[in-house]
Computed example of a mutant assay.
Amino acid sequence: MKKEELDKQLEKLWKKKPAVQNPKLKEQSWEAFSAKAFVNPSRRIEKVGWQWVAAAVIMAMIAIGSLLVYQNNPIQQVNVFELVENTTLQVKRVELPDGSIVELDPFTKLEYAKNFKKHRTLKLQGTAFFQVEKDENHPFVVQCDKTTTTVLGTTFTIGQRAQENVRVRLYEGSVRMEIEHLPKNWVLEPGEEFIYNHRQVNIKPFERFIDFENANLIEIVTYIESSYHYKIVLPEVLLHQSLTLRINKKERFENIVQIIATMYDLKPVIDKEHKTVHFHQ
């Protein structure tokens, strides 16, 4: 290679701004490189010329900078996903790495990043109920077809019945709805349902509570068992007592257990492994 061409390439490499890197790591990398590359610096420079040595140094620093940026850039890890699929005819309950709970309807798929605590973004195909743990620094985002639902901490359902047909029901908290390629967004309040159907948006109220008027406790127990798939064991003497009670249809299970325990002065024992709750006097 002619000297003029080599000088031009070296000048181009020298002006190229390397990626920002940790000074300490840069110094360590340089020492390791120089120990191997310059066993006898004076003889090497004399043999190959200063241009080749400078070129090797610049290329090494660019390579080291790129490696450090790759190793320290969390975005490189976001594209590694976990896939959860419910192939059964029953609701599948899943606990996400951040403590949030998802209940997947039959034949529903959920995909999320392995480093989910830092990047709480999911892709949903089907219908699911979400009980989100609050984290103001890491918003919880669900992508379903062309819609994006963003929350901080709340309970809601998302259902996709067909392409471009998505329904979101908000039970607690607040969510912001966005649609691909549209500049507008919608903020839902508890008790509102967002419907996206063939490029049209409709927001309407829905009944998020179930009321029991002078009902026997056994009726409420039957509802809880069918909704949360736990076996409830109460003292027999209480089952036929009547009461009036309003329950959020997507109330946290632990809250319902505590309500019953407080009303009848009982001590609940929840067995998650066997899906049972025993109330003791």
Rank of each mutant, 00 (worst) to 15 (best):
P190M: 02
P190G: 01
P190F: 02
P190Q: 03
P190K: 02
P190C: 03
G191V: 00
G191Y: 00
G191T: 00
G191E: 00
E192T: 02
E192G: 01
E193W: 08
E193V: 11
E193K: 14
E193I: 09
E193F: 10
F194Q: 03
F194M: 04
F194W: 04
I195F: 06
I195D: 05
I195M: 07
I195Y: 07
Y196A: 02
Y196C: 00
Y196I: 02
Y196R: 01
Y196D: 00
N197I: 07
N197S: 08
N197T: 10
N197L: 08
N197C: 06
N197F: 08
N197Y: 09
N197W: 07
H198S: 13
H198V: 11
H198K: 14
H198G: 10
R199W: 07
R199G: 06
R199P: 00
R199M: 07
Q200Y: 08
Q200V: 13
Q200W: 05
Q200T: 14
V201K: 06
V201G: 04
V201C: 06
V201W: 03
N202T: 12
N202I: 11
N202A: 09
N202L: 08
N202G: 04
N202S: 09
I203A: 03
I203F: 04
K204W: 05
K204S: 12
K204D: 10
P205A: 10
P205E: 07
P205D: 08
P205G: 04
P205I: 06
P205C: 07
F206K: 12
F206R: 11
E207S: 15
E207T: 15
E207N: 15
R208T: 13
R208N: 14
R208V: 13
F209D: 13
F209S: 10
F209G: 08
F209N: 13
I210M: 08
I210E: 08
I210S: 08
I210G: 06
D211C: 11
D211K: 14
D211G: 11
D211W: 12
F212Y: 13
F212K: 07
F212P: 01
F212N: 06
F212I: 12
E213Y: 08
E213K: 08
E213I: 11
E213N: 09
E213A: 07
E213Q: 09
E213P: 02
N214Q: 14
N214D: 15
N214K: 15
N214W: 09
A215M: 07
A215S: 13
A215C: 09
A215E: 11
A215T: 12
N216K: 14
N216C: 11
N216T: 14
N216H: 12
L217V: 10
L217Y: 03
L217C: 04
L217T: 02
L217H: 03
L217G: 01
I218N: 15
I218G: 07
I218E: 15
I218L: 15
E219D: 14
E219M: 10
E219R: 11
E219Y: 09
E219W: 06
E219N: 13
E219F: 07
I220A: 00
I220M: 03
I220F: 01
I220C: 00
I220Y: 00
V221Q: 06
V221M: 02
V221T: 10
V221H: 00
V221Y: 01
V221R: 02
T222M: 12
Y223G: 05
Y223N: 04
Y223R: 05
Y223E: 05
I224F: 11
I224G: 02
I224E: 02
I224H: 06
I224K: 04
E225D: 03
E225A: 03
E225H: 04
E225G: 01
E225C: 01
